[in-house]
Write a protein that binds this DNA or RNA. Sequence first.
RNA 1: GUCCCCAUCGUCUAGGGGUUAGGACUCGGGAUUUUCGAUCCCGCAGCAGGGGUUCGAAUCCCCUUGGGGACACCA
Length: 508
Amino acid sequence: MNSLTNVRVRFAPSPTGFVHIGGLRTALYNYLYARKHGGTFILRIEDTDRERFVEGATENLISVLEWAGLVPDEGPRQGGNYGPYFQSQRTEIYQKYARELLDKGFAYYAFDTPEEIEAARQRARQSGNQFMKYNFTIRHEMSNSLNMTPQALRAALDAGKPYVIRLLVPEGRQFEVDDEIRGRVVFDSREIDDQVLLKSDGFPTYHLANVVDDHLMEISHVIRGEEWLSSVPKHLLLYECFGWTPPHMAHLPLIFNPDGSKMSKRDIQSLDELPSGKVDPDVASYIRKGYEKAAIINYIALLGWNPGEGDDRQVFDLPELVQEFSLQRVNKSAAIFDLKKLQWLNKEHIMRRDVASLMEELKPALRKAGYTDVADDYLARAVGLMRERLYFTEDFVKLAGYFFNDPTSYDEQAAQKRWQEDTPELLRQFAEAIRKLDTFTAGAIEETLRQVAEAHNSSGGKLIHPLRLAVTGVSVGPGLFELLEVLGKETVLRRIDRGMEIIPKLIS
RNA sequence: GUCCCCAUCGUCUAGGGGUUAGGACUCGGGAUUUUCGAUCCCGCAGCAGGGGUUCGAAUCCCCUUGGGGACACCA
């Protein structure tokens, strides 16, 4: 089982300012794989694009990962023997390796200005080629060291002419990956271009930095989104040029909007009003909306993975996912993000939480709603009754106010339907009967109620519905007898009186 | 456009030659002689199309179609 020695995996996001749902799933699968195989989970920040630098993005990213419980073993915050873990702090390393490629003849200097590149692109377009490739087809007409004498190159370098370093991609080579998820995939080298490895500002591009770091950090498995699959041949070529063994690769299926489009931050104008068919890709939005972290983790785990034949479980916590996870059971096809199922899982996870932790979480919201001075044991009983009916923890505040305050209004529709001619008399009798009760427990209350109803040749429902209305003001809630027990005799009697006074006026 | 990936209910998926094609979400219905977005039952709904291979194909192969990704001095 643990025959894989030294599993080292990494989550390598670029700090764009928010954490994408798909990114979180990539992080999760990496984390699960590491834990499953006793390996190391590494966080590496790919911040080589200084034009897209976003203030605070890295801090945000780390805090979301920690919130989700996906704490790296090595990374910016915890350090490690393979640092630094910011690519922006590793530029000399990449420059050194770029020079090595230059020396070996696997890369070359290119001095083309952006204007010259654009002009070449124009020429290609005019001859019907939408996407120009800077490769064997045109590199001999461009301004690069392949077309210069050593003296001219020296002169250009000495003159400080801006340059990039490009990978010299051979013609007519085949590159094969045996992807852990997709199986064998073959690429022809004529399809890739002479990728820029080092930009004119001295920073590496993704491809160089990624390959160098994965090697230096001894990454055993590269687990990332499918959008990287077509970059694999470039990476394989680089490994080959350096003489390194490439890591195992696993390209995960993508996650889409309900309408099949790519989940994009651009779709999001406001948090609640999404264009139809779109869904918010920002993990922070879900946190803010009050989703359980366990539900989010559970849901995205299931988006592209399942525990396998004969295992119908849908609800998993993180340790269970670690136990069950395997790359072999990751799907090939893209998945659509379904809010409804996430919400259902949210409810399932709330239901499984212990009352004490729910209570603690609810306290600030309760205080804010004006329910102060609530005794812990009372709150615990209320939460216990409501726990399995909540889609969000905050629903408790909206749905269960009657545990703390007498109702100030009554559901008129319910009143119309349930408040009948004999209701006042029944309630009066019931109130009398429970007044005499020594033990105000659900069992005793139910017995009493049934007796009163029977004495009137009436059904329990005749009393139960108006009673609930009088006591809570609404028509839905937990089982009535347990509810009354928690509220306590005095409160119940007081509310019956009040209800009998006010409700009849509503329906006249 | 070129290359690459993908294709089972509306959605997430099981199923990898012989199954009444299974589960989950959603939706609909019923039960709970106490409500409900709770719970429990029941139901609706699917192998994209066409060719092969085979006694037999959702399953293997090919084509078509559809969806997606990549094609930057962004990752």
